[in-house]
Design a protein around this nucleic acid. Sequence first.
DNA 1: GAGTTTGAAACT
DNA 2: CAGTTTCAAACTC
Length: 778
Amino acid sequence: MDTPDRDKNHNNTPSSLSKFEDSPVFRYISSLSPIEPVKSIHTGHVFNSLTLASPSTLFPSPQIGSYKESRFSVRRPQFLEGSSSDLPQSESENKTAEGDLDVVKQSDPLEKQLECITNEGSVREATSEPHNEELDLAIELPKTLKYDCGSPDSKLLPSDEAPEDAGVEVAGPQGSSADYHKDKMKERQTSFESEINLRKVCHVKQNEEVEGYDWMKMVSDAADLLNFNSPITGEHSEGQNQKTADSGTLSYISTLLQLPQDPTNEFENVEDGCPGGFCKQSEMGEPVADQMQAILSSSILDNDPSLKVDDKGETCSQFSSEQRSIRRRCLVFEIAGSHKRKQLQECSSPTSQGSEFKVCNTEKNSVSTKTGNSHSPTVPRGIGLHLNSLANSSKCGKLVENETPTSGKQSISLSGSLMWSSFRTAENPLNKSLPPSSINMNVVPHSSETMVIEESPQMSTAFVSNEADCTSPRKKRHKLEHEESASCKRCNCKRSKCLKLYCECFAAGLYCIEPCSCRDCFNRPIHENIVLDTRKQIESRNPLAFAPKVIRSADLDADFEGESNKTPASARHKRGCNCKKSSCLKKYCECFQGGVGCSLSCRCEGCKNTFGRKDGADVAESEEEFDSCENNATEINSSDNAIKMNDQECSDLSKPSSEIDRPLIQQPFAYIGKPQGSLPCAVASSSQLCITGKLGISKFSSGQTRFKTSLQAIPEGETPEVLKSDCSSPGQVKATSPNSKRISPPHHEFGSSTSWRGGRKLILRSIPPFPSLSSAEK
DNA sequence: GAGTTTGAAACT
DNA sequence: CAGTTTCAAACTC
């Protein structure tokens, strides 16, 4: 629709521009801020979201654009693959459009929105790189975002293009344009969706900017997520290309988005003298575009039931290419959740990460419901990510991976199982550290109440940092699956009202669900407040109360091999068991139940844990056992027990898995400190359950490789990090936790070596601030 | 399915 | 911090 007009505008632009320039108004403006162009660039970095309005914005577009391009030129490379002949045109159009916009802006300096948009565009571009880049860059993004009018969307938009579009529409009746587009969307979803989405995004961005800053956080998070996406981008580009090919009429926006990726664009850019411009878009385009698209796509996706997201966050290409591209980006944020966006009609939940969360909201908002805040009041249930959520996430992730979309979500929200623990705070630096837990899962509340948990790449990233091996989020998931079955479990509480750790559901950060046979259950979304309060109380007593009981890490394997000998699994129970009669050969023993060997921290008597005895000597001896156990035994190993467990779990899990999905309980941010720890727990546990359920055998039996590597590795890595991330927490945890007894004592074995390892193994040990560790490891 | 065993969680 | 009680899962029959 816009194109014709735009073309006209473009054609007109030169004259109009000249006119404007000549106009006294223009002169006046220019006199006011001669420096502006330069500022605009800097402003992108420096500005606060709202400051954008400055006059500098008026002029910047051309210069900025070039500048931006230059910046990005370097990186662009990979994504360009997707080529679209359209791009050049689009760019030219965009440029013209920008010019028009600029002119308009100049004429109407008052229109801050437009300025913001333009600024955003510039900023976006600048910021976009970081997205593509690694997390480190991600950090930068927030800043850039600040500069931006705020909306990540703007970022997403190709610097030139996006702003233009936004600007164009906005320029007219700003507010109306969005609505108008929305209407169009309904009418013309196909061709116009993209445009509309972009516009919406623009609005959203503006709104968001006005509203809050979570963007910063979100952006950073998103950046993390984006990192994962990178591989996807190729697909994305393809999708876009298809889009172009498929739909002769690509929304202007869509074209813009694509442009960056298209090689053709590169050429143009090069011609422009900004090969970088091309590049920048590519990279930026992905990250930024991803975000933009994500938002847009989210809106679109909402409409599209067909969307599928890969575990990795890749969206299935089911949708139209356009949507696909967008969706992927969305996926980045929502990954698993996105997987079934259908379900997700609403992203009310405040995900652990503000960014994701917001994105969802914005997207969804555009589509159906809009939550004003990322924190969304809607969040109510504690949709936010929680350590426990991880467990679910793990499930979800697994499910999603393994299973088709239908099942895939199961983990997430099917039955509406909710995790209440979400405490990741976007604010917390910890979040970064925590990443996996909080970040990983984003719970998106469905309109129905069911919440979809989305994993964010961040988790994986974060973990990755810690875990050298944890290259793929999948591993993490596997690990998670491994650990606790809590998520899968159904409680049978009669007196605890499911508000105590006796309740497995509660302990796992999950709301009780139908399958539970509990009595007088208060662990329901309806009683969220009670649940959260109770949780707080419990955490106040023991910060690690909700943390994963079993820590498994590939790292441990590697690091500990020496030590690990002790525990075949290389995983350890945080607290250690206190078994006296079960000889750690039955599920009474948490270590055994978790499939990990006993450690020094265990107080067990007559330990015969097949996964590893607590005594070092035993361990040494056990190594053989151990190996045998792992190799053969994993299967045979715990033999009866293990097998039984597996079977049981499997049976339980398999069914429950579908059922398992539960609403997560959000934790109040206040908990942040704890939750971090807690999250991992839940996750791990839940993950284990689920995984074990399916994998269960695999875990022990199939796990062949060793559970270490497969299962344990994942959870461990996560948990450790989580703990680390707790960061801060380790020390705190000890101090606070009543259990500290068990936890704290780093025994010679573990503790002896590096503090790091010790920290991981011992987890609880006071360790240097987590961040440093993570960074160091990285 | 009922009853017992077990060990964690909670309480004192 | 240690001891006791409570609780629900795990287990047995």
